[in-house]
Design a protein around this nucleic acid. Structure first.
Lengths: 157, 157
DNA sequence: ACGGTTTTGACAACTAGGTTGTCTATAGAC
DNA sequence: GTCTATAGACAACCTAGTTGTCAAAACCGT
């Protein structure tokens, strides 16, 4: 019997949730509490050069205020630190701290470990096949997952 | 080169998003605007017997107020209709209307069509293998996806 | 060098989808 | 018949966003 399309969607969501929740829990154990994918993503984007709130907002496709709030959290937690740009005193330029880089490394590691656990369970071949299939479907890596009510609201684009 | 665990997570999320967004858009075209998976799920749960706000709340694992709000939306849109229980005047008992059943049918159909599109692109075998792999991983179908900021907040359970 | 336009980041007010706590009315139990 | 539990409503709050407004600073064209 063929599965239904709805089941397929829920399997994908369930898979993501399983990974994301496990990763968040594991990160908490390793000293990074309340970290979710969005924070990792934001730090990465800052590290890649989006070093002001406005620029981060543009790169992430959110409002400046939302980006500023995220930066506020990251700064308060010590993952990034910011100083006023001497050449443009409107700007505060942010850099990723050692702690921030440590978070990125740990995050990668945790996800890789989880992936390895999956590979153990169903076999490396099968897992790679799954990834290959999703890639072949042209699934683009989402660049925004910090949309509130994403699952309940209609897409705005 | 082996993919990273983080990419795997994003692929899964991207896959779900692709399906959910396409389904929502297609449902809108067919006369059901602003419908998201959560509404389908709620209607199904009511149809399965959770015919009061409190019962729906329990089944969905959300607060009574959240359930009442969802029911309010569904009622206003004509997908369910409610009357005071003659044997317990505290309760309002809801039933799924014809319109509600039509939405469920259309929703199923839309998802099945999307799945068929995927099957065309990567082959039925490959798609079934993907589903099989996820099932084998013990991914449980999420019963709650109406959590705000789900992707940004730590899990509460 | 001055004046108009753009950009930065902050503030306030709002939305959507949740939460908890309090309350009344009704129902059920001993 | 009182005591307890349940249904649903209301208010207040939370979180992660949004838009609009604004002052200060920077950029640009004449």
């Amino acid at each position: 019997m063929a599965r239904s399309g709805a089941d397929l969607a829920l399997l994908l969501l369930g898979g993501f949730r399983a990974l994301a929740d496990a990763a968040s829990a594991e990160l908490a154990k390793r000293g990074h509490e309340n970290i979710r994918p969005v924070h990792d993503f934001a730090i990465r984007t800052i590290d890649a050069g989006a070093d002001t709130a406005s620029e981060l907002a543009r790169q992430l496709g959110v409002s400046k205020q939302a980006a500023a709030k995220t930066i506020g959290f990251l700064e308060q937690r010590g993952y990034v630190s910011g100083e006023v740009d001497p050449r443009d005193s409107r700007r505060r330029r942010f850099t990723v701290t050692d702690e921030g880089h440590a978070l990125l490394r740990t995050g990668e590691q945790v996800f890789d470990e989880l992936r390895a656990q999956w590979a153990e369970r169903i076999g490396t071949t099968e897992l790679e096949r799954l990834e290959e299939a999703l890639s072949d479907l042209g699934i683009r890596i989402p660049t925004r997952f910090d949309v509130p009510g994403y699952l309940t609201n209609p897409p705005t684009d």
